[in-house]
């Protein structure tokens, strides 16, 4: 059992920078690389994951006293799979276009390591409040990374940034002008790897500078 050294606020914010699931733990890279061809897709995937992570963290920490150790993993999986199915159905019903562009990656949230990882490593050993804050923080960190990744790829790849899109309504800004021809590869899978690589490098560089200052 980890000693409760971290403050509640600390549990919430650690996922954003210090233990960011994408940029530090390097977990959940599969959806992060696959769906982030636009800022909105990144946000959408982040939102879906937030729902699942928050829900499963809370539920797992509630039921932890009655779950025998030997069946905990199947129980967690059932809980997570139920939340994923719910989010999948909700997207299909109320965000059809987003669910089409995320495609298979919504059901695949089930196997996202962050979720089972947080359930096993955190929610099953901490209070409900702490687990909720941890889940929310981790999910927000995940969403933030996906949003930045998607936004960078979209801006370089097609010169636009999309915050929302549903049928006719869309919040989309044309940053680089109408005549920007676009760099196609950034929207294709290789662009995801390149951008993520540069993001990791930037994060490490900033962290190094911060460490120097504190010393």
């Amino acid at each position: 059992m980890p000693a409760n050294k971290t403050s509640h606020l600390g549990e919430l914010f650690k996922g954003l920078w210090k233990d960011n699931p994408i940029m530090v733990l390097l977990l959940g890279l599969c959806p992060a690389l696959a769906v982030t061809n636009s800022a909105y897709n990144g946000l959408g995937m982040g939102a879906a994951t937030t729902f699942v992570l928050l829900g499963s963290n809370i539920l797992v920490s509630i039921i932890k006293p009655i779950v025998p150790k030997s069946v905990r993993i199947p129980v967690y999986i059932v809980v997570i799979a139920a939340f994923v199915t719910v989010v999948d159905m909700l997207l299909k019903a109320y965000q059809y276009e987003l669910s089409r562009s995320l495609g298979l990656f919504v059901p695949l949230i089930v196997v996202n390591c962050i979720i089972l990882g947080r359930a096993e490593a955190f929610a099953s050993r901490n209070t409900v409040l702490r687990s909720a804050l941890d889940g929310l923080g981790m999910a927000l960190g995940f969403t933030l990374a996906l949003f930045v990744l998607g936004a960078l790829r979209e801006i370089i790849g097609s010169g636009t940034i999309t915050f929302f899109q549903m049928g006719e309504t869309e919040i989309k800004f044309n940053l680089l002008g109408e005549n920007y021809p676009g760099i196609l590869v950034m929207i294709l899978p290789p662009g995801a790897f390149l951008t993520l690589g540069f993001m990791l490098a930037a994060r490490n560089a900033i962290q190094k500078r911060l460490d120097k200052k504190t010393r």
Partner: peptide, 8 residues
């Protein structure tokens, strides 16, 4: 190769 994929 980057250019080939980026600007086919």
């Amino acid at each position: 190769v980057f250019l080939l994929i980026a600007f086919p």
